[in-house]
Design a binder for these strands. Structure first.
Lengths: 196, 196
DNA sequence: ATTTTATGTCAGCCATGTTGACATATCTTT
DNA sequence: AAAGATATGTCAACATGGCTGACATAAAAT
């Protein structure tokens, strides 16, 4: 054995002959060693089940773009901006802030980078010259497609597997999970019956 | 006007006579000023719609517990631990790490607090005395109930609104969103046909 | 002309993720 | 019994992306 120092992770992989790391440690691996205990009262509670499924589904749903973003030194925050600017070209900074629910200082940090690296383009508003209307550059659109592709595929596959009524039911359920005050706005925002 | 300094936020509230803050700035408020632009090609794409709905639904879904946790000086990370320990009493640290998908150092930071403040109890394993089997104390169970209550209500309401088939379809769709390698494990973990 | 609004920016704090390195107790294997 | 592997804990340092507070500028609205 060489005298090269191993980190915990490497030592683990070496010792256990598994290629697991902290990040990739699979549920399967943990489960295979021994069963997960589960509280008896919860076995037949579909609400608790859905709550946990939401956690896992969202985690995996965001994992594909997260992995891609490391190539660009961007994070999840950049993705959100690219997504919403891509889907709503000409959106104002104020509107984007409202959608994301973060402060302008938080947005500025990522938006500045995206503008500097020319993924996002700011056009001065014509009606109101104070506004900076946000658009994706061709480069930005390319990144947007790269990021959304695995998510679209994942959702398409899930909806297909869940059956023909799933599209409608899943959409309805997600919408109903949103705070009632925002439901109509989100429905307009994301939906078909649209807008300017 | 008094010479008291106002922050941006206060100045905004004062000037605009709105009670909005950065955190509570509503989508409605932003939408009311002018319509959100939306890319034409996307109008009829249900996949993009579902992707956005997932973002908003998950955001609101986590907002209720987040608000409660500030009373305890805990964050979302503490919530996850409390949730999974509560639902799987006797879970080992390694199993919890696999579920959460974080490093042991990240977990340690929150778990240490939860143990110190006696929300979580560690019992030395009998079969394997190296293991620390995690349980909620009565205090921890109380907090768990407080945190899960609004989420359970939200999910119950959404499923009701979406119709009788929603429970099954929603669950199936969420499960299908999860990485295939983990689906069977998660199904066992959250599901009914259970375990030790 | 004054006030309000839309946006930007500096500075610093906090929560929660990450790596790397190492310690200890206990179980497993030789 | 000794050696190795595993489960857990811990110190230190760093990154990301939230946050608040304070202030600046340009343009619109009054």
């Amino acid at each position: 054995m060489a005298d090269i120092k191993l980190t915990d992770k490497q030592a683990f992989a070496q010792n256990s002959a598994l290629r697991e790391t902290a990040k990739t440690a699979s549920l399967d691996a943990a489960a295979s060693k021994s069963a997960f205990p589960t509280k008896k009262e919860d076995h037949h509670d579909p609400l608790n089940e859905v709550i946990e499924l939401l956690f896992f589904a969202y985690r995996d749903f965001t994992s594909d773009p997260d992995a891609i973003l490391t190539d660009y030194d961007f994070g999840r925050a950049h993705h959100r901006v690219i997504h919403f600017v891509g889907r709503h070209p000409g959106i104002t900074v104020a509107q984007l802030l409202a959608i994301l629910g973060i402060t302008k200082q938080s947005l500025a940090r990522v938006l500045k980078q995206l503008v500097a690296e020319e993924y996002v383009i700011q056009k001065t508003g014509t009606r109101d010259r104070r506004q900076r209307l946000l658009h994706l550059s061709p480069k930005g659109e390319q990144l947007e497609r790269r990021l959304s592709e695995p998510q679209r595929k994942r959702v398409a596959k899930a909806l297909n597997q869940a059956g023909p009524e799933a599209i409608d039911t899943f959409r309805k359920t997600l919408l109903a999970l949103i705070n009632p005050e925002d439901q109509s706005t989100v429905a307009k925002l994301t939906g078909k019956g649209e807008v300017s």
